[in-house]
């Protein structure tokens, strides 16, 4: 069971209070009805599922009820940071640079694909 810090409650709470809500930073197009099949398919179905750092959404469902984002290493389950919904993607390089050196196996990072929706 993970300990997760809620950026609204500013406290670490057990995973039981949270619900994972999938990949973060998938932006719903404001004129979605005009989206091409390809873009819509990418928004609806395609996910990064990286081995390593992933941006993901959580909801503090049995707490404050807020949705927020987190950067978690899918190999070690370690959270790099959590941040409020709507805040920009944190600079992972900077976070990693400031991280206490750990002898966990090195994280393979892959440039995240940029979604057209985000451009």
């Amino acid at each position: 069971m993970l300990l997760i810090k809620c950026p609204y409650c500013e406290e670490e709470r057990p995973e039981l209070e949270f619900r994972n809500a999938g990949e973060a930073h998938l932006v719903r197009n404001s004129s979605i009805i005009e989206q091409s099949d390809e873009d819509f398919a990418s928004f609806l179905y395609f996910r990064q599922n990286p081995k390593g750092l992933q941006f993901e959404r959580w909801r503090h469902i049995h707490g404050c009820g807020r949705f927020f984002n987190a950067v978690r290493d899918s190999v070690s389950d370690k959270f790099l940071t959590v941040y409020k919904a709507g805040e920009p993607k944190p600079d992972v390089e900077a976070l990693l640079a400031g991280r206490v050196p750990s002898d966990a196996e090195p994280v393979k990072r892959r440039a995240p694909r940029t979604k057209k929706a985000e451009l």
Partner: peptide, 13 residues
């Protein structure tokens, strides 16, 4: 409720 909160908080804030 979860579905509504999700859209209200993250897509239509």
């Amino acid at each position: 409720m979860h579905h509504m909160e999700d859209y209200l908080q993250t897509e239509f804030p």
